[in-house]
């Protein structure tokens, strides 16, 4: 089963839930798909065994074949190619803007002269290894790179279907999150009981309904703020899977990279319970779902 952990709002506790859930189960693989700001390694402290650079394909122009016809510029939906036709006294030129390229391959496939080939451009690193019993993979987007989805897709290729796969997703509701949570069997939405938490939870719920992924909610720092998140979940028939109270001890341990489950045996039981509840809600055997 693939379980992704997401939230509209950042900083609600996605990584906390993902890490502690992973540490409470047997036979787990952990994929940190928050490639802009990966944090799970700070808690799981994996021994990295493999490091691989990740690339996207971008066009390279063979100027000896190019006739500056402009077809590539026409077909590029992302304005990643500019063509300046030649004049009598001098040749033309083609400019490629790799940061805008989505790697769709239209230019190389449709160039009438066969003057475009695709070359690799590095965008980030994937590191994989082991943290105790947990198989660990994360992606790190290079600073200055705009597009994280291609790297997230690469991280997800490491998925080991023989294990329970936990995906730590980035915040938000747009392309990086969708790329991370797509194809999950279940998604846990982590929120906090504040107006910000509620507003962004509702957006995340809308996203998961559109993607048709079953989900439930974890309310973190459940004793701060107000009761509107719970009211909302009640109204929408959304299962609240777990509530984590605010505690200075948990916050202090978090700040040092210490997972909750290594503080107290009780927490491990709670997270094992969370997993069992997820299975029930997913299988539809839960009366409250």
């Amino acid at each position: 089963m693939i379980i992704s952990i997401a939230s509209g709002k950042g900083g609600t506790g996605k990584t906390t839930v993902a890490v502690n859930l992973a540490l409470s189960l047997d036979s787990v693989q952990f994929l940190d798909c928050d490639v802009e700001e990966p944090n799970a390694h700070l808690f799981l402290k994996p021994l990295i065994k493999d490091t691989a650079r990740t690339c996207v394909s971008v066009p390279e122009i063979d100027h000896s074949k190019c006739t500056y016809c402009g077809e590539c510029r026409q077909v590029c939906a992302y304005n990643a190619i500019a063509v300046l036709p030649g004049k009598e006294d001098k040749g033309g030129s083609v400019l490629v803007f790799p940061h805008l390229c989505h790697g769709c391959g239209a230019c190389s496939m449709l160039c009438p002269q066969g003057a475009i080939r695709e070359v690799n451009k590095e965008i980030g690193t994937i590191e994989s290894g082991q943290a105790g019993k947990v198989l660990f993979v994360h992606g790190r987007l290079d600073v200055g790179e705009a597009m994280s989805p291609p790297l997230i897709r690469q991280v997800k290729k490491y998925t080991d279907p023989s294990r329970t796969v936990i995906i730590d997703a980035p915040p938000g509701t747009s392309c990086p999150v969708i790329t991370a949570v797509k194809d999950s069997d279940f998604c846990v939405l982590v929120t906090e009981p504040t107006p910000f938490g509620l507003n962004d939870l509702a957006l995340a719920v809308e996203m998961l309904r559109k993607l048709e992924i079953p989900f439930g909610v974890v309310i973190n720092r459940c004793d701060i703020g107000d009761g509107k998140v719970e009211e909302y979940c009640g109204r929408e028939g959304i299962r609240i899977l777990m509530k984590i109270p605010f505690s200075r001890e948990i916050a202090a341990a978090y700040s040092e990279g210490i997972p909750m489950v290594s503080m107290e045996a009780l927490y491990k039981e709670k997270f094992t319970g969370l997993y069992l509840d997820i299975c029930k809600v997913r299988d539809g055997t839960d009366s409250n779902s």
């Binding site: 700001e37 705009a146 994280s148």
Partner: peptide
Amino acid sequence: PPGIGCPVI
């Protein structure tokens, strides 16, 4: 926004 990607840039 959070992160370092496209909307941050």
